[in-house]
Amino acid sequence: MGTTLKIASWNINSVRARTPIVERLLKEEAPDILCLQETKAHNDVFPASFFREHGYVHQQLNGQKMHHGVAIVSKVPLHEPGAHDWQDNGEARHVGARLDCGIRIENVYVPAGGDIPDRTVNVKFGQKLDFVERMTRWSEKLREPTLIVGDFNIAPLECDVWSHKALLDVVSHTPVEVDALTRLQQAHDWIDIGRTFVPAPERCFTWWSYRSPDWTKNDRGRRLDHMWASPALRDVLASHQVLEPCRAWTRPSDHVPLICEIQV
């Protein structure tokens, strides 16, 4: 009989500022592995001891002072760590490791891309597209079973946003970004775990802006966070959850956690 591995992914928007809600997640959901994005903490100030006290003794960090940053904390061993510089500028946006079962887990924080969806006038938008293109080239060569999780900062489907028409020209849902993410997905035949368990066009959001006076009332959400699996893992995917209630926790992130379970 196989073992179930529970993996969580969360753009926490400053791990040190939101340690109380991270602790709540760990106590209520008890994931075996937690992948964090936007930790905003260099490795030397990351709350490593806090996670060790909660049983997450295996840690792979790729931090950066004040900005970006990703981390994998785990109750199970992590091997062969790696960090791709998919933005080609030294920003801390990826960390990965291999699990005992042979599956690699890759944790990524795709750039937001600024406000103007035109790379000729917005350098950040061009960097975002180039980041996804480098991930695509990497995916084409991938030959090992892999889970890639994180904040992709792109909502690909029309039903992944509160209004397709209103957001067509808004960074995160523009056709050029959607096309780029589609090419990335096709490069490895990635399985979109979220939409496997919550089929389109069912509502599924993972992010709500802080700018909204009442995020629950207008529900202007987007599905920016994702979990993808190699085709070889299709038969071991057991479940997927979007923990939407976390958006209402004290001092919340604007993103909510995702959790998937796999049989290993």
Results as ranks from 00 to 15, higher is better:
His94Ile: 10
Gly126Leu: 11
Asp192His: 08
Ser163Ile: 02
Ile191Leu: 08
Val123Ile: 12
Arg211Glu: 03
Ala166Asp: 07
Phe125Ser: 04
Gly90Asn: 09
Gln87Asp: 05
Glu202Leu: 12
Asp189Lys: 06
Asp192Thr: 11
Glu158Lys: 09
Ala112Trp: 02
Leu184Val: 11
Gly126Cys: 09
Asp85Glu: 12
Pro81His: 08
Tyr210Trp: 12
Asp100Ile: 12
Thr120Phe: 06
Asp179Ser: 09
Leu168Pro: 00
Arg134Phe: 01
Glu202Trp: 02
Asp100Leu: 12
Pro77Ala: 08
Ala200Asp: 07
Asp88Glu: 15
Ala166Ser: 12
Asp115Lys: 10
Leu184Thr: 00
Val123Leu: 09
Pro81Ile: 13
Ser139Cys: 13
Glu140Val: 15
Pro199Thr: 04
Thr136Asn: 01
Val161Trp: 00
Thr120Ser: 09
Glu177Val: 14
Arg137Ile: 15
Trp207Leu: 14
Trp208Arg: 07
His84Ile: 06
Lys128Ile: 03
Gly113Tyr: 00
Gly113Ile: 07
Glu133Arg: 05
Ser163Leu: 15
Val170Gly: 02
Ala92Lys: 07
Gly82Ala: 11
Pro117Ser: 08
Val110Met: 06
Glu80Met: 15
Leu168Lys: 07
Gly114Met: 12
Ser139Arg: 06
His94Asp: 00
Pro199Val: 05
Gly150Arg: 01
Asp100Gln: 15
Asp115Gln: 14
Leu157Pro: 06
Phe197Gln: 10
Leu157Gln: 07
Ala187Asn: 10
Arg137Cys: 05
Val171Asn: 00
Arg104His: 10
Arg119Met: 15
Gln87Val: 03
Cys204Thr: 10
Ile154Asn: 00
Met135Cys: 13
Ile191Gln: 00
Arg195Val: 02
Val198His: 00
Asn89Ile: 14
Trp207Tyr: 09
Ser139Gln: 01
Gly126Met: 04
Lys141Thr: 08
Leu168Phe: 05
Phe152Met: 08
Arg93Gly: 05
Thr174Arg: 08
Arg203Leu: 13
Pro145Thr: 11
Ile105Cys: 04
Lys141Ala: 11
His173Phe: 01
Ile148Ser: 04
Glu106Asn: 13
His94Val: 07
Pro117Phe: 00
Ile148Thr: 04
Pro175Tyr: 01
Pro77Lys: 08
Thr174Gly: 03
His79Gln: 10
Ile191Met: 02
Asp115Ser: 12
Gly113Arg: 02
Leu78Val: 09
Leu147Ala: 10
Gly114Asp: 04
Tyr109Val: 03
Ser209Ala: 13
Asn107Cys: 13
His94Met: 02
His79Arg: 15
Val198Trp: 01
His188Lys: 14
